[in-house]
Design a protein around this nucleic acid. Structure first.
Length: 286
DNA sequence: CAATCAACCTGGGTGC
DNA sequence: TGCACCCAGGTTGATT
């Protein structure tokens, strides 16, 4: 479940190891066909070799490798994808789909136990279109309480579902939405447009704090996340509510047993004391 | 346009 | 101990 902090952890580690290096080969594992995609008429396996990596950027949960042939390698880890660095002669990583040997002694390896992850050679205009479809970066300055309050104005869905929508905000997934709503004391079922400006402002601060601290801890390893060296992140031990609803663990703030809930088909945990739905406003009834 | 939901996958957990 | 079943969730696409 790599979300923004996990993808940023991968980016931070991998960028200095690959920038300036050329990709010499594309090695596909025939057991996992279809992981590598490209634009119509361009075979990525033929086009990638010889290209030099100029930089590695992150947008939401996507990684963008800028190549010197003006194309981009766009990688999404989805649920269980892993991007690892290994020496040329190191054995394949678990569920290895793709190896990209560099012009030193290292390879970039992509593995994914569940075949959801994707590596796509992408035209610049496709990258622009993809980025334009995503909401703002929650750690950048334009993501403010005022902006969020306005953006939620036309949304009649549940706040948790709206925050998971990458068109609204880029990079949040199930873990950090639950954590941020808990921190901001907002019920996951609250209707998005009913959030007050103060709610939106608290929520923005909570999202930022939750993401920043997860990045500091190199991400959350709940089941499969590993950084490019194959190491787990340490943020799982700092989660306040995610995954704790089913066993009714005590709320770390007030001690009330946490409650599990399904919202938009996603497992959800909240504190029934700290995160309450607002009273229905009688003045708005006909 | 927005909301909802099935589909894609498979390791790991649960219950019998 | 074995086995059938169910669950986890990021994104896409169909449907309402």
């Amino acid at each position: 479940m790599p979300e923004l902090p996990e993808v940023e952890t991968v980016r931070t580690i991998i960028e200095p190891l690959v920038v300036g290096r050329s990709i010499t080969k594309v090695i596909l594992n025939p057991a996992f066909p279809g992981v590598l995609e490209g634009p119509d008429g361009i075979d990525p396996a033929l086009t990638i070799p010889g290209s030099r990596i100029q930089g590695v950027q992150r947008r939401g949960k996507y990684l963008f490798f800028a190549l010197d042939n003006a194309l981009w390698l766009v990688i999404h880890l989805r649920m269980t994808g892993r991007l690892l660095i290994a020496e040329h002669d190191a054995p394949p990583v678990r569920f290895e789909h793709l190896a990209l040997p560099l012009d030193n002694d290292m390879d970039i390896r992509f593995g994914d136990q569940r075949k959801f992850g994707r590596v796509r050679l992408t035209l610049p205009e496709e990258v622009d279109a993809l980025s334009a479809r995503l909401g703002p970066e929650p750690l950048e300055a334009n993501f403010t309480g005022e902006w969020l309050h306005h953006a939620l104005h036309r949304r009649s869905g549940k706040i948790k579902s709206v925050l998971l929508d990458q068109h609204m905000v880029a990079g949040l997934g199930n873990i950090y939405v639950d954590e941020a709503l808990f921190r901001a004391r907002i019920h996951p079922l609250m209707i998005a447009r009913d959030l007050t400006p103060e709610d939106a402002s608290r929520l923005v601060r909570a999202i930022r704090q939750v993401l920043k601290s997860a990045i500091r801890n190199q991400g959350t390893t709940f089941s499969t996340f590993e950084n490019p060296y194959g190491e787990s992140g340490s943020n799982a031990g700092f989660l306040k509510v995610y995954g704790k609803g089913r066993q009714h663990a005590p709320c770390p703030r007030c001690g009330t047993p946490l409650e599990p809930l399904v919202v938009g088909g996603r497992g959800t945990t909240f504190c029934p004391t700290c995160q309450q739905l607002p009273e229905p406003d009688a003045s708005k009834q006909p």
